[in-house]
């Protein structure tokens, strides 16, 4: 899981996009793996839609759980800006 192969899938049509977790054979998505999670987080720190990232439903669910856990532990922000 060290160096995952990631493509934005943007060049391919919707039907031909491939899930990055399936191609890298990742079963357990770790909430501490911020380098991977960051690829699926928006500029506004929202979870990217499956339509854009090409992640399959099974992995998207696991991914969203992982991102939510890391948000809870303050590893990833909920929102872009917060006022002190």
């Amino acid at each position: 899981m060290a160096n995952i192969i990631f493509s934005t899938n943007q060049k391919h049509p919707v039907g031909k996009r491939r899930c990055t977790f399936c191609t890298n054979q990742i079963d357990h998505i770790d909430y501490k793996d911020l380098k991977t999670l960051r690829l699926f987080i928006d500029g506004f720190k929202r979870i990217k839609a499956r339509y854009y990232s090409g992640v399959c439903l099974r992995h998207q669910k696991a991914l969203s759980n992982a991102i939510k856990l890391s948000r809870e532990m303050a590893l990833v922000p909920f929102v872009t800006m917060y006022r002190k």
Binding site: D27, H28, D30, K32, L34, K35, R38, E72, M73
Partner: peptide
């Protein structure tokens, strides 16, 4: 946080440098 891990899970250290 307390979470259950799958069986045979091996702890991996991740690069947290980007933070």
């Amino acid at each position: 946080l307390v979470i259950r891990l799958p069986e045979g899970h091996v702890y991996t250290k991740f690069d947290l440098t980007y933070v």
